[in-house]
Structures are given as structure tokens and as C-alpha cells.
Design a protein around this nucleic acid. Structure first.
Length: 574
RNA sequence: UGGGGCGUCGCCAAGCGGUAAGGCAACGGAUUUUGAUUCCGUCAUACGGAGGUUCGAAUCCUCCCGCCCCAGCCA
């Protein structure tokens, strides 16, 4: 590492780390404490991964700690299912909160006491104004709001009313507790924000113990203070809340003075990341569930075969800044490939089989050939593949009338079957409809392993699978859930769905070594992409999800030619 | 003409007064029993615009333009 790189690393990689480092250096904080504060009302997605990596990453790098805290202040939206999935997902991503698992609901009693403190200080009051009237009195972005007629109630009356709110004497919406700040503030959050509302609902953790619940603003900063959080990192839309965050910390006898910092949330092209939209996709059955492999949820990405390290690396590559931005989904895909390439075992699988009959190979004979698990990593060993008189190759790897530069099989052309032999196409077999159903070939017995003794070269190397010693499998090919880079830009995101985001192939054939569904690691199907067993997989009926395809420059060239009308892409025979 | 932010290559993003990092994408080329990988090379006289300060500005000042967030008893 050169001096510059060292200096860069020491300076921190983003503005948040710079702040943390400066605070540590100036001794403003002894131990950095961060927190990841999800609301358990949905599944975690890749946008959360950015926040998780930032918070846990900073704690790790600077020798501090990071808490997992559920922001469970709204029982009508929150569920245990989400509380469980969030913990599973954070762990899967590679982070651990140790004993520091907390809930805003752990602090309800303390929060309540602080609310009374505010009332006694004349800084909060119970307001009987109905919701609609309150909205009207809040003013607009350009006009100040009006003081509530209940703003000047006595401390005694406020205390009495607030206690009766807690006691359950009033129905939902009848009254709220508000901070007394400034109805004329340019910052809407300071126009006497609601601190407590009445919600007769069962809370996943506190049950029916409470019927009043603190709002986000009243719970968050105080929870940070209770836990000794030093750097409360959130997204940009909370920037306007910071003055309120600070106001509460200043006026309450909290045990610490945490500070809030905001960064830009993650956006990705061809993707939707808002909880509302993700929930819609699930509820409306567009996808099979929160863990549908097309979903940007951590559960979906995991099922898709994306390793957690790819998420961490992606977040690192994206960086952390304050400018709203949309990251090209291609960066994410490149990161997945880069992460998988050095570690994924290679296997052969034929997605759309075309029978290849080797006429001069003895009938009934088979042999096993060694194939490298990873050509660039010999230490990963080999597995045996079976070769015989009939094998399957990819339909896309044959063209009866190929364009120039097509390096694969066509009448009279010789290619290599990877790790096996050189074969030459002698005859095309068609059915009554004129569809290609098989190829008759000859092989060079001297080319065992893939090289001819005379040193002649072939342009193409094809993957293949034995017709007799392969297993039929289902392969699910996924592509972007949305058909445009900015789904919803014209209105409804549902109108931008990609109708071909899932293609199911049921006739695929995979080599024997792939039939074990307990092998969960993502592998590379040579020349095609990265795949992993879906949880639907069984030994009799393997099911694979395509994690991501390999880069395919031939497809790119071929598409360009097609667009230019110069040549046709390989025609599928079925 | 309320308040708060942001504008550096097609997409992210460093840069913090001393003469534009890096990644992705794209485009060339080498190697290759994966048209993959790997490897080389090209890719911002220019930092939203206009003025100004300075020996020197993406970095400081002024004005202008554009985009984002806020009027939940959501978070």
C-alpha cells in the first residue's frame, strides 16, 4: 500500500467516518456507539444494507459497538414476523449486535416520565384538537400556523389529562400530547409536533400495557441517549427533524447528548426500494413473497444466491455521500460477479438441450473424464463427468446457417466439448415441422481431454452434459422486475413491470454433481452464469435460480448485428 | 421570494486554495479448453452558470439556474 492509499484509508472513506474520526481524535467521544434502528413493518432490503454496513462497519472499524434497536412505536403497523426476519437478515449480512438488542418499547416508561417532565417545564401540552382541525391550523409551507386554543392549559390540567390518556379514558384520536415550540417556524417539525398519540392497539412486545405511544420524534433521540449512542446516522429526509431531535435532547434530563447525521439513501436503477412499493408487490401477488428472488430484499437476494459479501462490497463501492443519486444496477451485478468468480465451483448444465449423437463412439460405452472445479484454482480439485455416445448441448450453440464470427457448432464445423473431445457436425436431424431435433456428429478419439495430437485449433468450446448420466432440472431465469430504469416515474410503478422478469425452463439437464440440493453454495454453470439450488429443490427434481448471468460479449455483438439487420441470432428449436 | 439540503465524466464518487483519485459502463488490444476470468490501453483543459477575491479556485465571496425533502396523531 502506497503512502497515498494509507493516507486515504486513515482519512476515512466518507464524511461520516471523517466525523467519527474527528470526534474520537478530539476526545469528544471515548467509544463510538451507533445503532441500526429498523421499524419492524417490513423486510429489510438492499437500501437497509447500506445503513447496516455503515453503522456496524463504523463501530467495527473504530472499535466501538453497534446496537440493533427496533423502532417499535407504532403497534398498528408492526409484526413479530418482521422482528424475526430483520434479525436473521442482519446476521446473514455478517453483523452481530452481541448483547445489544434493544427496542424503543423497552423505554416506554422512561419516555413517559420524560413527557411529564416536559409538561412540568411548560414545554408540552395536551391538545384536544381533532386531526383535521390540527392539520388546518398547522399552516402551510409559506404561511405560519395558528396556536391551538389548548396551548395554554395549566401544568396541572395537562398532567391530569395526560395521565388519563395513559389510563385509557379516551378513544383513539381524542387528544395528543404536543411539544410547545413555535407554530410560526419555517420548519414544519417545530410547529408544536405531536409527542404522544392514543392508540388502543396490541403491541407485539408490550401487549396491552399501553394505549398511548410516543411518536418517532419523541422516541428516537431519547432512545439514542439512553443507549449512549454517539452517532445517530439516518437518511436525508430526517434532516428537518434534527432541530427537534436537538431540542428534545436539550430540554430533557437525558444521560447523554447524541448527535444525528444524515446521508443519502440508496436508489438503484430498474429497482424499487420503498417499503410501500415492496409491500404492494407482495400483497398484489406480483412476486411470490418477500423472498422472491427478484425482490431487492435481503431475503430475496439470499434466495437468489447473492452472497452477503457481495452486498457489503457493493455498499463499499457505492460510497456514502449527501447527494441524492441512482446507482446503475450494472454496478451491483458486476459486484456479484466479482465476488462469486473467485470462489464459485464450476459445473456444466444445459439449459435448453439439443441432442448430439456421436456416430463413431461405440454404442453402450461410457467413460469418465476429469473436470476442474475451478480452472484458476487447481487446489479446489476435480470431479468426474460422464461422457458417452449421446450428449446434450445448448440449442444456442448450434446454427444451421451461422453468421461470420459464430464460433460454435454448425454443419461441417468442429468444436471442442469441454474436458472431453473434439466433435464435428455431420448431419442435422429435423422433425416433420422442420425443427432441428438432433445433430449427428463424429468425434476424434485422439482428442481425449480436448486437444488433438496434431495441434489443430477449434474456435469454440461448448459445455455439455451426458444424455444418460445427467439429471433433469428446473431452472429459473430472472431479470429486472421493472422494464425501465426509473419505475414509477410516470406514475404507477405497476405499469412499469417487466412481464418477462421470470422465465422457467423445465427441461434443463445438469451434470450429476449438481443433483445434491444440500449443496447451497452458488456455483457457476460454465459459459452461462451463477446459479444456486432454490429451496424448492429436491434430489429427484433439482430447481436452480440464476443469480446473475456471465458477461456475454457475443450476445452484445449479436444483438447489435440483429439491430443492424445483418445477421440473425441463434434460433431456438423449441 | 417558508425552512432544510444537493449540483465534479453516461452512473456512483474522491477532492477541504496549488493546478481533476477510484469503481461501474463504454471502446480498443493481448492471453484463454468458459465469446467468462485475467491483463494492458483509451475515456472530464474540466468541476450547474455568470461575475469577483487570489500569483493560483472544483475548493473562498456574490448573484443566478436546476434538482430533492418537509404541511402523518408514519418512520
Amino acid at each position: 500500500m502506497g503512502e497515498n492509499e494509507t493516507a486515504a484509508a486513515e482519512a476515512g472513506r466518507d464524511f461520516v467516518r471523517d466525523i467519527v474520526q474527528a470526534d474520537l481524535a478530539a476526545q469528544r467521544v471515548q467509544t463510538v456507539v451507533t445503532r441500526f434502528p429498523p421499524e419492524p413493518n417490513g423486510y429489510l432490503h438492499i437500501g437497509h444494507a447500506k445503513s447496516i454496513c455503515l453503522n456496524f462497519g463504523i463501530a467495527q472499524e473504530f472499535g466501538g459497538r453497534c446496537h440493533l434497536r427496533f423502532d417499535d412505536t407504532n403497534p398498528v403497523k408492526e409484526e413479530q414476523e418482521f422482528i424475526d426476519s430483520i434479525q436473521e437478515d442482519v446476521h446473514w449480512l455478517g453483523f452481530d449486535w452481541g448483547t445489544h438488542l434493544y427496542h424503543a418499547s423497552d423505554y416506554f416508561e422512561q419516555l413517559y416520565a420524560w413527557a411529564e417532565h416536559l409538561i412540568r417545564a411548560g414545554l408540552a401540552y395536551v391538545d384536544d384538537t381533532p386531526p383535521e382541525a390540527m392539520r388546518a391550523a398547522r399552516g402551510t409551507l409559506t404561511e405560519p400556523g395558528q396556536n391551538s386554543p389548548f396551548r395554554y392549559r395549566s401544568v396541572e390540567e395537562n398532567l391530569d389529562l395526560f395521565r388519563r390518556m395513559r389510563a385509557g379514558e379516551f378513544p383513539n384520536g381524542a387528544r395528543v400530547l404536543r411539544a410547545k415550540i413555535d407554530m410560526a417556524s419555517g420548519n414544519m417539525n417545530l410547529r408544536d409536533p405531536v409527542l404522544y398519540r392514543i392508540l388502543h392497539a396490541t403491541h407485539p412486545r408490550t401487549g396491552t400495557a399501553w394505549c398511548i405511544y410516543p411518536t418517532y420524534d419523541f422516541a428516537h433521540g431519547q432512545s439514542d441517549a439512553i443507549e449512549g449512542v454517539t452517532h445517530s446516522i439516518c437518511t436525508l429526509e430526517f434532516e428537518d427533524h434534527r432541530p427537534l431531535y436537538d431540542w428534545l435532547i436539550e430540554h430533557l434530563p437525558v444521560p447523554a447528548q447524541p448527535h444525528q447525521y444524515e446521508f443519502a439513501r440508496l436508489n438503484i436503477s430498474y429497482t424499487v426500494l420503498s417499503k410501500r412499493n415492496l409491500t404492494r408487490l407482495v400483497r398484489e401477488g406480483v412476486v411470490s413473497g418477500w423472498d422472491d428472488p427478484r425482490m431487492p430484499t435481503l431475503a430475496g437476494l439470499r434466495r437468489r444466491g447473492v452472497p452477503p459479501g457481495a452486498l457489503r462490497e457493493f455498499v463499499r463501492r457505492v460510497g456514502v455521500a449527501r447527494a441524492n443519486s441512482v446507482v446503475d444496477v450494472a454496478l451491483f451485478e458486476a459486484t456479484i460477479r466479482d465476488t462469486l468468480n473467485p470462489v464459485a465451483d464450476r459445473r456444466m448444465a444445459v439449459l435448453r438441450p439439443l441432442r448430439l449423437i456421436i456416430e463413431n463412439y461405440p454404442e453402450g460405452q461410457t467413460e469418465t473424464l476429469p473436470a476442474a472445479n475451478h480452472p484458476d484454482a487447481p487446489e479446489r480439485g476435480q470431479r468426474a463427468v460422464t461422457f458417452g455416445r449421446e450428449v446434450f448441448v445448448e440449442q444456442d450453440d448450434f446454427m444451421e446457417d451461422p453468421p461470420r464470427k459464430f464460433f460454435r457448432l454448425s454443419p461441417g464445423r468442429e468444436v471442442r466439448l469441454r474436458y472431453a473431445y473434439l466433435v464435428t457436425c455431420r448431419e442435422v436431424v429435423k422433425d416433420a415441422a422442420g425443427q432441428v431435433v438432433a445433430l449427428r456428429c463424429t468425434y476424434d478419439p485422439e482428442s481425449r481431454g480436448g486437444n488433438a495430437p496434431d495441434g489443430r485449433k477449434v474456435q469454440g468450446t461448448l459445455h455439455w452434459v451426458s444424455a444418460t448420466d445427467s439429471v433433469q432440472a428446473e431452472v429459473r431465469l430472472y431479470s429486472h422486475l421493472f422494464g425501465r430504469p426509473d419505475p414509477g416515474a410516470d406514475g404507477d410503478v405497476m405499469a412499469d413491470l417487466n412481464p418477462n422478469s421470470l422465465e422457467v425452463l423445465t427441461e434443463a439437464r445438469v451434470e450429476r454433481a449438481l443433483a445434491d440440493p444440500t449443496q447451497r453454495a452458488t456455483v457457476q454453470f460454465e459459459r452461462q452464469g451463477y446459479f444456486c439450488h432454490d429451496r424448492d429443490s429436491t434430489a429427484e427434481r433439482p430447481v436452480f435460480n440464476r443469480t446473475i448471468g456471465l458477461r456475454d460479449t457475443w450476445a452484445k455483438v449479436s444483438d447489435k448485428r440483429q439491430a443492424a439487420g445483418t445477421a440473425a441470432a441463434p434460433a431456438r428449436t423449441s
